[in-house]
Design a protein around this nucleic acid. Structure first.
Length: 404
DNA sequence: TCTGGGGTCCTAGGACCC
DNA sequence: TCTGGGGTCCTAGGACCC
């Protein structure tokens, strides 16, 4: 197997940048996309102007409001629209390599092994990736190139926004060594303090710890993975066809809720949403998980294996409601309720699916994106309630079960 | 500070079977 | 009246990521 070369591309401040692209008047102003100020929730994304005030994604919206100046623009996310833009960008990357894997709505990995003869050295391929994104969707991106996914990802993080970093194989250890240990994949808010307590700060420090010691402290797999990553060893494969393992819908109430009828309606709404998404993906699942978060933020899940795979709203609701009623938390005030479907029926073969439920192609996405922009223009001109598409389906119209 | 919503993957215990 | 060992499935919880 010849050595691989992986490119990671990350669209800078994705949600906020799309809004600034579409609304010139938002440019050079702090833009926050996320929860509505005054309600429960967090920042989903923010512009670089907002980051200057110490605001970052996942920060409670209340804290962001405290820090940001009055000219800040607060927007609710338009995820479906951003997903269209994401697919347009992904399609553009397909002109560089056929091996493109979407890692999230704003990131992708490309296998660019052996493309030098076509496009030149890695730097040239990196510049080309940024250029095709710019041309296709008018957004800036940061690119990292390395011998595997870990190094490519850390390289794209290295210089932002609009960065390009290439780490050749022989420079990997020197690149990794000074980075903080939180750069390791799988080292988060729980594991990082435990490593720091061992007197470790950087990846070079963690590299001094023996394999068995890491396994003993963090478990076999996690320990093995930390050990390998410190040495620049990581997954170097790109899987273009990865499909999701589960489909879920959840909602946090504005204030904790224990009113049974509202809970029932919310759960029915969630079942409809999950069912519709599953049917659109051509999937039926056998594993249904109900998620409950109590007033004190403790979270519980209850799973039921169904006898027959399903994507049917009423079945999903019936089973989920049954789980809720027999759970020890039934009747307690809830902060969040959610529903998830997984365990896909293997007979729902992806090939058959694509015929039944074609994924939106680049053309449809570009058309949809244009439609969104046209609708926005109308709203801007005639007010945001100018577009009203008749009667909403009953359960959906009740969907924002956020008690005020 | 007071903590969204969408996911992935891992661990561990118990049931069950041979 | 004492009780192995291994494999697999199911379930709950937890850590992490964007």
């Amino acid at each position: 197997m010849p050595a691989r070369r992986i490119l990671h591309i990350d669209l800078d401040a994705f949600f906020a940048s799309i809004e600034q692209r579409d609304h010139p008047e938002y440019r050079r102003r702090p833009v926050v996309v996320g929860a509505e100020p005054g309600r429960r929730g967090v920042v989903a994304a923010c512009s670089y102007e907002a980051r200057r005030y110490g605001v970052h994604s996942a920060m409670p919206i209340s804290e962001a409001v405290r820090r940001l100046p009055p000219e800040t623009v607060y927007l609710r996310p338009r995820i479906d629209y951003y997903a269209c833009v994401s697919r347009e960008a992904l399609a553009a990357l397909g002109t560089i390599s056929p091996l493109v894997e979407s890692a999230s709505i704003d990131e992708a990995y490309l296998d660019i092994s052996g493309l030098d003869s076509l496009f030149g050295p890695p730097e040239a391929i990196g510049r080309r990736a940024k250029a095709v994104i710019r041309e296709a969707v008018g957004l800036r991106a940061s690119v990292g190139i390395g011998p595997n996914r870990l190094v490519a990802k850390l390289a794209s993080d290295y210089r932002k926004p609009d960065g390009l970093t290439v780490v050749p194989r022989e420079r990997v250890q020197a690149f990794l060594d000074p980075l903080p240990l939180t750069a390791l994949r799988g080292v988060g808010p729980k594991t990082a303090p435990r490593l720091r307590q061992m007197g470790l700060r950087t990846i070079a420090d963690v590299r001094q710890v023996p394999l068995l010691e890491l396994r003993r402290r963090f478990g076999h797999l996690a320990g093995t993975r930390i050990y390998a990553q410190c040495r620049g060893q990581a997954d170097d494969t790109v899987e273009p066809g990865r499909r999701r393992q589960s489909i879920s819908k959840e909602i946090t109430f504005d204030s904790d809720l224990c009113e049974v009828e509202t809970l029932r309606e919310t759960l029915y709404w969630a079942a409809q949403e999950v069912g519709a998404l599953a049917r659109r993906a051509g999937r039926r699942g056998v594993s249904l998980t109900l998620k409950l978060r109590l007033a004190d933020f403790t979270t519980h899940t209850l799973t039921r294996s169904l006898s027959v795979p399903t994507a049917e709203d009423r079945t999903l609701f019936r089973e989920a409601w049954g789980l809720y009623r027999q759970s020890p938390w039934s009747g307690k005030p809830l902060r969040l309720i959610g529903l998830s479907l997984s365990g896909w029926d293997p007979s729902d073969a992806p090939s058959a699916q694509r015929e039944l439920f074609p994924e939106a192609g680049p053309e449809e996405d570009s058309k949809t994106a244009k439609l969104y922009r046209a609708l926005d223009a109308v709203r801007e001109k005639f007010g945001k309630d100018a577009l009203h598409f008749g009667v909403l389906p009953a359960a959906r119209s009740q969907s924002p079960k956020r008690s005020s």
